[in-house]
Write a protein that binds this DNA or RNA. Structure first.
Lengths: 193, 193, 193, 193
DNA sequence: CATGAATGAGTGTTCATTCAT
DNA sequence: AATGAATGAACACTCATTCAT
């Protein structure tokens, strides 16, 4: 029991270290040796928990994505109206991007990069289903435009990554007011007017 | 003159090679030696044209971004109405993402990554000014929502990167119909009701 | 008693695993971890039975060499004539190389390699004494050439290793007929004609 | 020209270092770093001359084997009688084992080991053809026993490796007298009495 | 201007061995 | 007696960069 606990701690420490290093300097500046050092572990120990670097990165991605979706849907249930449901999910995601920016930034870095292999990417997306279901409901009720989910995602959720990065990098502040405006833009872009 | 011409050719070849390699396997799979080989040049020659790898990547980014903005504004002039102007620019950008996907994918990979340094990033954004001016015009005329340009960008232009990647990676097809739908979403998200 | 029995089983399993792995890919592909796995034992357990890897390899060598000499002399007794005795031993050794090729191959790999330390090598040779005695008898009776035992060994026994490897690796078949021819060559090379 | 010369020097130094290290402590104690150091070269430089460690070892083997066969046949021509020819070749090989023991020991270590891949092994054997031709001549003239070349090799040439190792390791002295005795044994083993 | 050869520092990974349990 | 987890040191190999030519 104690052994197992310790193991999970190390695994977590490794994943945390990976996220931290990747966030600070990008994937190309996150060597195994540094990850090990930051997790207070020998480089060899990493390979007790992960097959290789690719696996470590994939697993980290999947784990973070799981946290993300879990957070996103925590307040949602399908008895909400389409608009209520959408707002609930969207705001939770916005919240995640603001409050858990470590994880959010890591996910953003994974977005357009071939570092995560396709299998893990699919695995990561899997838990987004409730949102897709909500959209289908909205479409059939004539509330949401009858367009591809890819477009719906591109115009509602994805912009939040950009805004979070702008907040981190440039002068932009992703505060309450801006989030409200962003939500309005998101909803306006997909609702049937 | 002939010498200079030759030089520009080599520089271009190097930039082209960088883009190609980064597109195929990401930044971590684009070593200087491969870039040199693909450009039919000695590794040492790269350092006649660029200070180091960081510089090569930065310059490549700036160059590609310049092509991108040049293409974006080619049909635009400020005598167009706000909506006409916006549509003109947006559609050109969409066009670029479809037709020059080599360059577009490279830019997408640079988006959320710390590989490009902040200075070069600013340099790349510089030429986007006409779009910002257009938005200001739209805002003052009450046509476009009075919100931060970051949000306007996030909800109109940025989604196109996501859709292009979806087209490259997943089943999604960024064709005429989808582009039209995306444009509608973009415009709906920022126009005053 | 049960405990002790179990221990011997484990020791044997470890030695067997060592032989098997070394045979398959050579010494450099027989790490302790794989040996442990193949013997269904923890890596740490190896160190209860052997001091270190060198010791494991040495002991394996000695053990296999012991089996080899035991087999070689099983049908021999010193009341046989010199030629009968030589044939008996030689044919047993040839038999061993054919039938117990696992062990024979392992010994062959140890032959010209510095992996086995000199002490263990001497230890392994020790049981060959009856053959040396036979040779001395043959020499004193004028039946066997009065030459160094090293040469006698080199020209009678050692060639069998080469032929066995040729059988394993190349097209050569070390069958009944070839063994008979080899025996004739061996005997011809050392007998006083 | 100077450049090319220097390159060949380095290649030779690397091969020499490989032989030396393998001879001293076996293959498992010849890491690339030590080979590089012994050749006064950076580890990275090895990879300018050889694809990888396997390639380095293979090429070293082929090169040494070539020197060996070249030396073996230097005094031979097919106008010699079968016995003269055999003695010429055999004695040259014995000579090689004595005088160029560095190379000879390296070859001995390669003999029963899977470190050299089969292709390189075949490549190494290729130049032995004149000996095989001589044997065929001897067989057709009824001078040499009509038996497999594998057996002829096992009982004439191969014992020399054993004797050389005995000379290096144990008390045995592979001197003139012993060589003469060994030759007699070799010839007796294959000649038609 | 252009290069091929060269490299020190670093990469991901494996290994023989140890230790707390 | 037996172990799974852990590790420092080493391994084969690669990289961005330099330099003599």
């Amino acid at each position: 029991m104690a052994k197992l606990q310790k193991s999970i701690d190390k695994r977590n420490a490794l994943i945390k270290a990976t996220i931290e290093l990747v966030n600070n300097n990008g994937f190309h500046a996150a060597p195994m040796s540094k990850i090990a050092k930051m997790a207070n572990v020998s480089p060899a120990t990493i390979y007790l928990y992960f097959e290789n670097k690719q696996d470590l990165v994939n697993k980290t991605y999947i784990e973070v994505k799981a946290k993300y979706t879990q957070y996103a849907f925590a307040t949602y249930n399908d008895r909400l109206t389409v608009e209520e449901g959408f707002e609930a999910i969207w705001k939770r995601i916005a919240d995640f991007k603001c409050k858990d920016s470590e994880n959010a930034m890591f996910l953003a870095q994974c977005d357009n990069t071939p570092i995560i292999d396709e299998t893990s990417r699919q695995e990561g997306i899997k838990h987004l289903q409730p949102l897709l279901d909500l959209w289908e409901r909205g479409k059939s009720k004539g509330i949401i435009k009858p367009i591809s989910n890819y477009i719906l995602y591109a115009y509602t959720i994805n912009p939040l990554s950009f805004l979070m990065m702008a907040d981190k990098r440039n002068g932009f502040q992703l505060d309450k007011t801006h989030i409200e405006m962003a939500y309005q833009a998101a909803w306006d872009s997909i609702r049937v007017n």
